[in-house]
């Protein structure tokens, strides 16, 4: 009796010991309800992908921040402490050394009074460089709290003002070309129905569209708002909605970046699930440029904790030929996308 009990106990004990987990490789064993799964939202219907990658510019930047297009479709990339300038073919032309780390940049277009003039947003001020790379001006500092995340230049014949998005103050600053700060746009105002910009993280983009309006992303509300240069809120022109579905903007605050397409319409870039998409001039969803399979090939990266919580967020720009430039900081390159169907370029 005792013998049997002992032998049985030895046998069970041996089996039990062999089943003691020695690593976490088997996973947490938590039920399905504990999974956080974005897989279905990360796969994009191939039919919606209207662009293909036609080339790429490798960057020797450890932190690249912004991409912009200037006259003659020159490509400007800001990062580390410099600006790299490429011609439309992707040949590196020059490099402008900066004294601090740039956050954003804009280049005066062909229609501008001073085409090729480069406006570089540092954390708390704007610096102006000539087309040859000489520094022309350093504009006033905006204070401790300022975090400039985007700049846009008005290119029409009579307007040459510069707009800088300040995520820290949650407002857009308007400057004249001499650097005089003229006004603040987008501050919360009940009468004008301006809810104010909700900016939970330092991603706050704006663009000047061909219709002479300033389009500003309100990331916390997942929408793109329209303002006149004088700061008047154009409520009917607001578009965008929150959704993980492909036609909406995902996550807590998106899109992170946006650019105007030459023929009207927008190209947007989202963080979280990195996807670059095209919208029409009135905000209707047109199609996808690139999704997570291209922009975040390490499938799990976005859901997991990252060192320093630095999200590698892509920036976008579009050139006059309708090519879309996607700055992919994780891969350290600018990817150049062209439409699969050449008709697309003119249509959108």
């Amino acid at each position: 009796m005792i013998g049997i009990a002992v032998v049985l106990a030895v046998a069970i004990g041996a089996v039990a010991v062999s089943r003691v987990p020695r690593s976490g490789d088997a996973g947490s064993g938590l039920p399905q309800r504990f999974d956080y799964d974005l897989k279905t939202h990360k796969t994009i219907d191939p039919a919606l992908i209207l662009y293909r990658q036609a080339g790429e510019l490798p960057l020797d930047l450890s932190a690249s921040r912004a991409v912009a297009v200037g006259p003659e479709d020159r490509i400007y990339v800001a990062g580390d402490q410099k600006i790299l300038v490429f011609d439309r073919e992707g040949t590196r032309r020059s490099e402008i050394a900066l004294e601090s780390e740039p956050r954003c940049l804009a280049v005066g277009g062909a229609g501008n009074k001073e085409p090729g003039r480069i406006y570089v947003g540092m954390r708390d001020h704007v610096e102006v460089y000539g087309p040859d790379g000489t520094r022309q001006a350093v504009w006033e500092r905006l204070g401790e709290k300022a975090v400039l995340t985007s700049i846009a230049v008005a290119d029409s014949a009579d307007e040459h003002d510069i707009f800088a998005a300040d995520a820290g103050h949650r407002v857009v600053h308007r400057y004249d070309p001499s650097g005089k700060r003229l006004a603040e746009i987008g501050r919360r105002n009940r009468e004008q129905k301006i809810r104010g910009f909700i900016i939970p993280s330092p991603y706050f983009d704006l663009a000047v569209t061909a219709d002479g309006l300033l389009r500003v992303v309100n990331p916390g509300m997942h929408r793109i708002e329209a303002y006149t240069f004088d700061g008047h809120f154009e409520e009917p022109l607001v578009w965008g909605k929150a959704s993980l579905e492909i036609e909406g903007f995902c996550g807590c605050c998106n899109p992170a970046n946006m650019a105007a397409m030459p023929g009207g319409g927008y190209v947007t870039a989202e963080k979280g699930i990195p996807r670059v998409k095209i919208y029409g001039a009135d905000g209707n969803f047109v199609g996808v440029v690139a999704g997570p399979d291209v922009l975040a090939p390490t499938a799990t990266i976005t859901e997991e904790t990252r060192e320093d919580h630095k999200l590698e967020v892509v920036d976008v720009a579009a050139d006059s030929r309708g090519r879309i430039l996607v700055l992919d900081p994780a891969a350290r390159k600018v990817r150049i996308f062209v439409a699969r169907n050449p008709q697309m370029e003119t249509k959108s």
């Binding site: 510019l57 490798p58 020797d60 490429f86 040949t91 590196r92 891969a331 350290r332």
Partner: peptide, 21 residues
């Protein structure tokens, strides 16, 4: 790693190198 590859590919692509780098 991908990062180094990108960095290593630059001179071939850009052709010219600046005196600073």
């Amino acid at each position: 790693s991908a990062v180094n590859q990108a960095a290593a590919a630059i001179p071939g692509k850009s052709g010219a190198s600046t005196p600073e780098t």
